[in-house]
């Protein structure tokens, strides 16, 4: 499937992918992060049950302490 990840085209070699799968494949290992799919916030407890579909616009960023 092909999605937009942080404003770039990204191709994944699979047809079905959860948010957790994407995190594993892309090695987004840092604990605190914000993920939005098509403008909708995905809670951490929904990473396993939320599917990313072909053409989705996915945004991800890390929350670093300090401020």
């Amino acid at each position: 499937m092909k999605i937009i990840l942080n404003n770039r085209d990204e191709v994944f070699d699979r047809d079905v992918m959860t948010v957790s799968d994407m995190i594993t494949i892309k090695n987004f290992s840092f604990r605190l992060k914000i993920i939005k799919i098509n403008g909708k916030l995905v809670s951490r407890d929904q990473y396993d049950s939320t599917y990313i579909n072909d053409g989705d616009n996915v945004q991800m960023f890390y929350l670093m302490s300090g401020g």
Binding site: I34, K36, G39, Q59, F61, Y62, M64, S65, G66
Partner: peptide
């Protein structure tokens, strides 16, 4: 400075933690 969407923007290096 990065726009996520109309309701959310992020400023910083998104990398370094204090």
């Amino acid at each position: 400075c990065r726009k996520i969407d109309d309701s959310l923007y992020i400023c910083g290096d998104e990398t370094l933690e204090t």
